[in-house]
Amino acid sequence: MPLGIPGPRALRTQLADTVRAIADTNRAGQAYGFLAITPIKPGHAEALRALLATIDAGPSPFSRLPRTHFARWVVLTDFFTGDAYQPADEDHLGCEYLIFSACFDGDRDSYLEDLTAEIADELDEIYDHCIGVRSNDPTDVARYLVHNQIDCGLFYSAYPHTTVAEVRRVVAQRTALRALAVAQYDLTPEELQAQFVDQLGAA
């Protein structure tokens, strides 16, 4: 197959992705860009930062959600910063907010379902610092995030039709092919063929 030209099946997938993307500005191809900005309880921002720092120091909880490409939590103190860049009567938010943003495969609702199932403990602790989540109901976080969702104006992806699993597979394949390319000169044709089948033989 010539480089970069998709086959009919890939074309159909891309077409379907494109139609979905046109209908929903939060999509780019099969990927979804989610953003929610939620109010932090008065006096809780420092504790929340400390909690997020603890989470940050360990393996990321998102590694348990194999559909996540990228994700971030950011504490927003205020729109008013005192910068010379801002208008004099800049908006004050009145409380601190927590920004949650994620880029993932597939649709929003099933992702949030996975999210609240897989990292329930962390979400519980984090959103306990926010105003308006029903405590002792982990599934409420999904409802809460949707309630506070901010729609994308424009969502860009460099490879909108590629899932996390696919990225990982092709990148590992590239590494293996390069290693075999360097090693080839010391291999007989039989050994080369055998190693190719062994290391690159499975899609």
């Binding site: 197959m1 590694s63 990228f70 910063t81 092709v170």
Partner: peptide, 30 residues
């Protein structure tokens, strides 16, 4: 001011170019 308290990438060693190159190679390898 908006430093992330937590930032996650699923394939932190792969750059955009590497991903796109790997996708292109996939057809040839297949």
């Amino acid at each position: 001011r908006l430093e992330a308290s937590h930032f996650y990438s699923a394939y932190a060693d792969s750059t955009v170019t590497i991903v796109k190159q790997a996708l292109e190679l996939d057809g040839l390898v297949a």
